[in-house]
Amino acid sequence: MAIALERAAGRPPAMLFHRETELPRGTDLVVLAGGFSYGDYLRCGAIAAHSPIMRAVREFAARGGHVLGVCNGFQILCEAQMLPGALLRNASLRFLSMDCHLRVERAGTPFTGRWQKGAVFRSVMAHGDGNYFADAATLDRLEGEGLVAFRYCDARGEATAEANLNGSARNIAGILSPNLRVLGLMPHPEDYVDPLMGGTDGLPLFESLVDALAAAPA
């Protein structure tokens, strides 16, 4: 993730530890990277959602700050109730570590500005609990308000059941907050940001962020 951020922004991000209580001055983007916080005890992301730094992250988002949560970061955002819904165990019960395709459902956001709506790009999934769940009313609201950012699809862009490897509700791979400044997604766009990684398919997400943040007033 740090590589992707540095590649897009031209400078390395500051790294924060969960015990810290403040964000550095001038922070314009908080990224909750993937991994396995607190051994996934209780529920994935449940303990981390209440770690000391999260108060500052929550306040930052409430002030209109941009927040990206990937994989465990998405789980943490849901557990912290900064995004609706929850991530359940994959329907297959298997840990899924493989390429997947995502379709851009909402263009023109700080995270998707470099894509057209309907664009399909390759990403990577590596999770055991990525099965997005929310009740029908919440799903309808997300869809109605255009807050579904990405859906799992096949290489042709069809959001089929076969392409929905983890069993997510309505093939949802990533969702946005109502102000479009908080994004959570399970796949790892940061894993394809350099030809040496096998592709740059995920780079537009980070370039979009740089565009949006460079344009935003400090």
Partner: peptide, 9 residues
């Protein structure tokens, strides 16, 4: 109504 794969297994 919430999928319980652990219970299923």
């Amino acid at each position: 109504g919430v999928l319980d794969p652990q219970g299923k297994a």
